[in-house]
Computed example of a mutant assay.
Amino acid sequence: MYKKITLGLLITAFIVGISFSKGVKPYNFSLKDENGKVITLESLKGNVVYLVFWTTTCGSCKEELPVVNRLYKKYKDKGVKFYAVVLDTKDLREIKKVKEDLNIQIPVLIGNRYVKSKYRVYGVPVTYILRKDLSIGKILYGTNDEKYLESLIQKFLKEKRDG
C-alpha cells in the first residue's frame, strides 16, 4: 500500500512541477547548430522561440518535424525562432540525411544530456514554446495538431511581453 501511495505522490509531484513551470524561465542553453555556430537561448530574446526536442530514430518525431517545418516556413521571418534540438547524435552527416529524408529546413541544434535533463525530456518529441521574454508559454508532449500549434504561435506573437 505504501508503494502505491509513494508512486502516486511522485506522479502528482511530477505533474504539478510541469504545470507550475509555465511562465518560468527555462535553462539558458548554449548549443552549437549544425553549422558549428553557437546559439544561446538568451540571444533569442524578443522572439517567440519554438524548440522541438527529437531523435533521429523516433517515429513520432518523423511525423512531427514536417508539421513544424511548415510552421517554420510560414513564421521564420515573422518573429519566431525555430530550432529542432537533436538528442541522440552529434553526427552531422546523419542529421543532414534525416533532414533530407524528411525534406525539412528547420535549423538543428546539437543537444546533450545536460540540456535533456534541464528541459525534462524523458521521451520525444517534446516541444517548448517560449514567450518573447523567454518564459515558458507551453510545453507539449508527443505529436500535435498543426492548427493548434499555429494558434499558440499566434497567441504568443500577439503578447506584448518582450522582457
Rank of each mutant, 00 (worst) to 15 (best):
K118P: 04
G36L: 02
N35S: 13
S21A: 09
D133W: 06
L157V: 05
L44E: 08
S60K: 13
N28T: 07
S117M: 14
G79H: 01
D162M: 11
D133K: 10
E159A: 04
Y122I: 15
L157K: 00
F53I: 01
V98D: 03
Y27K: 10
K76L: 04
K62M: 13
K74L: 03
R120Q: 13
V121K: 15
V48E: 04
K90V: 04
W54C: 06
D88V: 07
L140F: 12
Y83K: 13
K62G: 02
I106V: 14
N103R: 15
K147T: 04
T143A: 09
V48F: 03
I139A: 04
C61S: 11
Y114C: 03
I18F: 09
V24R: 15
E150N: 07
V68D: 00
R70V: 02
L9F: 11
D162F: 06
C58Y: 06
N47I: 02
Y50K: 09
G137I: 00
L87T: 12
N69C: 01
L7S: 10
V48N: 07
S151A: 08
P66V: 06
V48A: 04
Y119D: 08
D77S: 13
N112R: 08
V98M: 13
K4Q: 14
E159S: 14
N35I: 00
T57F: 12
L130W: 04
Y128L: 05
V108F: 06
I39S: 09
T12S: 14
Q105T: 08
K90R: 11
I129Y: 00
E42M: 01
E34D: 06
K73Y: 00
V80R: 02
T55L: 03
K132Y: 04
K81P: 02
V67C: 05
I15W: 03
Y122G: 12
D91T: 10
S60A: 08
W54I: 04
K132A: 05
V126R: 15
S21Q: 09
K4F: 06
K22A: 02
M1Y: 14
V108E: 03
K155C: 01
Q105C: 03
P26V: 05
I153H: 01
